[in-house]
Design a protein around this nucleic acid. Structure first.
Lengths: 215, 215
DNA sequence: AATTCAGTACCGACTAGTTGGTATGTAATT
DNA sequence: AATTACATACCAACTAGTCGGTACTGAATT
């Protein structure tokens, strides 16, 4: 029966199945058997790769984080030279993602941490770590844009990064509640407008096409 | 043993226990036995009041909605005459709430809908209904403020209402992940600043989002 | 005023199925 | 030969939900 005997491949199949199932049903409602069945692996195989369900949750969070890092790190907007344009490109990219199926664009970490924060400490920590890393990646561009367009602003780049993620996470909740991304799209447009306004004040010099044409 | 034989009281105790437990552990991880134990009621009593766990979820969502309606409807900021001040008062009120324990200020509806949206349709619908009602309550003040301060703005009051709720829901996720409300507070401060900016400028033009504001 | 009686509120043991996890076996790889 | 990578069979604890029974209530009947 066992056609392939590739440890890494099996592990990846389990993690992918876990990612999809947990995004759809949540962490608690997703059983080990569910994951095994979806991945085409038996219980024995599962517990060969992960010593507990919680440890799978941690591993799934880590895998999701590096997947996100890869997706956003290699997205087209990263080629833009202006940090503000990269930031707005990120938002536009996330808005574009809302065109796919709900289960494709929602965040595993946000979903898991909601139910796991009080009862599964290791999962909570893994979600926190992944989200924090993503915020810090963003904050780098925000900081560069700030130095360029709003050096005297009172807000911190990090807080803007967390704000962006809060809007996105909240938008996902409404996409789920309404079974439609429409409200989420509008929220992210508000977010985009706010970001523009943050970099629009006082001494701004921009050679870019979009916003400021004041002299 | 049975001191009081008050149907409504027992039902309320079950709903209160469900609210607290689900906010802490999520919907799936909260068992009927958990709820019974916390409420001091037996299984028989539970299923006398609710014909299924899902129906309890729906009832809990409804109760939570009317609780919210009552809290925000009778909050001090409602006395303010200016609709914009009422709106900002709402934000300040929510920021102040972040001083309590996590389990006290998080949203049952947002928590439940995350895990239930695909697998428990009735619960999803109840959460949607509750959140939508709350947004519409908010949107009323937003609309009034718009007529007063930004009559020509291109955004809709409803979309601003959903945006506010998205930020709040997302902030809760980070409060859980970080086990601290600090990040949530900062996000709500950004939200507050955005709302101020929406009503601050001479919005005599529509659609063009760039607006220069003075400090 | 006492009795009946139907209905409501609740109890707690039970069930059939599910849960995460284990013990043991075995074929493939090193 | 030893280790790895699984599969199979199994278990104790737990799961939502059931069911027969009990205690209390309040109104109608006696």
């Amino acid at each position: 029966m066992a056609r392939t005997r590739n440890s890494l491949e099996t592990r990846t199949k389990l993690l992918d199945a876990a990612r999809d199932l947990i995004r759809a049903k949540g962490y608690s409602a997703t059983t080990v058997d569910d994951i095994c069945h979806a991945a085409g692996v038996t219980k024995g195989g599962f517990f060969h790769h992960f010593e507990s369900k919680d440890q799978l949750g941690v591993a799934a969070a880590e895998q999701f984080s590096s997947m996100a890092e890869q997706i956003f790190g290699s997205a087209p907007y990263q080629e833009l030279e202006d940090p503000l344009e990269r930031l707005l490109g990120y938002i536009d990219f996330r808005i574009a993602m809302l065109g796919a199926e709900i289960s494709q664009y929602t965040c595993l970490l946000g979903t898991m941490v909601q139910e796991a924060y009080a009862t599964h400490p290791s999962v909570r920590a893994a979600c926190d770590a992944g989200m924090t890393t993503h915020v810090h990646d963003l904050a780098h561009d925000i900081e560069d844009a700030k130095l360029l367009y709003a050096p005297n602003a009172s807000w911190t780049s990090e807080s803007v990064g967390y704000f962006i993620q809060s809007v996105i996470q909240g938008a996902f909740i409404f996409a789920k509640a309404k079974q439609s991304p429409d409200v989420a799209v509008e929220s992210m447009m508000h977010l985009r407008r706010y970001l523009e306004s943050l970099f629009n004040s006082q001494n701004s010099r921009s050679s870019s096409s979009s916003q400021i044409q004041k002299e």
